[in-house]
Design a protein around this nucleic acid. Sequence first.
DNA 1: CGCTGTTTTGACTTCCCTCAAGCATGGTGG
DNA 2: CCACCATGCTTGAGGGAAGTCAAAACAGCG
Lengths: 247, 247
Amino acid sequence: MPTHLIRKLELFTMLSAEDKQALKAAVSQRIRQLRPKEDIIHEGDEPRHVTLILEGWACRYKYLEDGRRQIMAFLLPGDICDLRMFILTQMDHSISAVSSITLAEIPADMLLDLADNSPRISRALWWTSLVEEAISREWIVNNSRRNATERMAHLLCEIFIRLRAIGLTNGQSCEIPVIQAEFGDALGLSTVHVNRTLQDLRAANLVLLKGKTLTIPDLDSLKAVALFNANYLHLDREGREFDANEA
Amino acid sequence: MPTHLIRKLELFTMLSAEDKQALKAAVSQRIRQLRPKEDIIHEGDEPRHVTLILEGWACRYKYLEDGRRQIMAFLLPGDICDLRMFILTQMDHSISAVSSITLAEIPADMLLDLADNSPRISRALWWTSLVEEAISREWIVNNSRRNATERMAHLLCEIFIRLRAIGLTNGQSCEIPVIQAEFGDALGLSTVHVNRTLQDLRAANLVLLKGKTLTIPDLDSLKAVALFNANYLHLDREGREFDANEA
DNA sequence: CGCTGTTTTGACTTCCCTCAAGCATGGTGG
DNA sequence: CCACCATGCTTGAGGGAAGTCAAAACAGCG
């Protein structure tokens, strides 16, 4: 049941009952489970199907020749790993599980049918990929122009808001299965500095991290620290003019 | 005459004579000229047409509230500014001219026709947008994990190779209308440090910069310094199976 | 020729990195 | 059931890469 995906697509445009049925069918074909750090797909691979995240987190990453690692995106439940495979042959980066993860593998032709039969699904999928692109661009800004504290705050805001959009927050809290070394790899910071930065944010009462649970007592304050502007997430149902007219 | 665009699309798949004719027609509708630093489109705008760069350079950029600026992409001749407008309503960033620039404005419906009538053009346009996305991701890596020298070297490699792909290099040289402050805004470095970094590269005989002319005496050495891997540019005609069968 | 925008230099500061060690925590097996 | 090890978090000291500020040198161009 691709709850998160449907929830996410409907941030853009309302789907019809048939749309949802079709998605459900496509997604129940083949399910896969992975443990943390296992690769979903590797640089150089030529994917033959599309992978949807049902539960858990993944990340896009790349190694430089000398071993430095950079995470370029976090993929959350409802995110699709490799929509681009229809056009590009070779993966130019890898994707691996961050937490334990449940995936649905959708055969390429099935996804094409899905898009052909529903302009709403097609447009909504396109939307997700444009939003992903916008997130990439924001990460360039974040990792290039913000200092460590702002950077960390910004990432936490983004993650919290993305999780909230798909119903994975609980009041001011959410679960984040990311270790400090991974934050470092995402933010272009050393693990040590991530640690100190988090301490600062905690000391300022901007975030609370207990185990894997993140609590943000006052999101607006955290946004202010991060110079956060949510416009790049395009969450305000910009495709509402295409809504299925039922509901 | 959209020479650079056609040249670029054909890096992916060969177009037919009709394809090219159609592109030519679409592009000659409305031509605009801009001077350096003029905005092509601004954050918050809702674009009503697609803008193609015929001559000159542009850049995507964003300001933080406190005035820090980040360039997230350089757009070269043959690049399209806002293909995404079909789905997203509001621009989440701005685009401005870097050099004097000639643009073609293509009405939205005309572009849709173009794509509908030629699966090759449609796929090739999709390809350009996926490559742009891959470039964004590489910029995240670049600005997060590489030091100033590597970063500068990497950007120069990328630009040189992109220009070469559309026929805008001359042997080991090409024209780069970018001032040091702009390099800084793109690389997340201060202007002063860009200056010193360029001096280092010059001293090592890796690059030659005379006015706006860049010469790279030995591209392989520069790539080595930059830890450059061109796979993310997807320049090896990955769409050749879709070629128009004429030629 | 003088203005404006760009590049270059020098001195000083700071943010973040590296290295290295010390703690927690939790899971495993003797 | 506790000892042990692995993994992740925390702390401290010291260094280095890049930032800031400010002024000088160098274009181009009207």
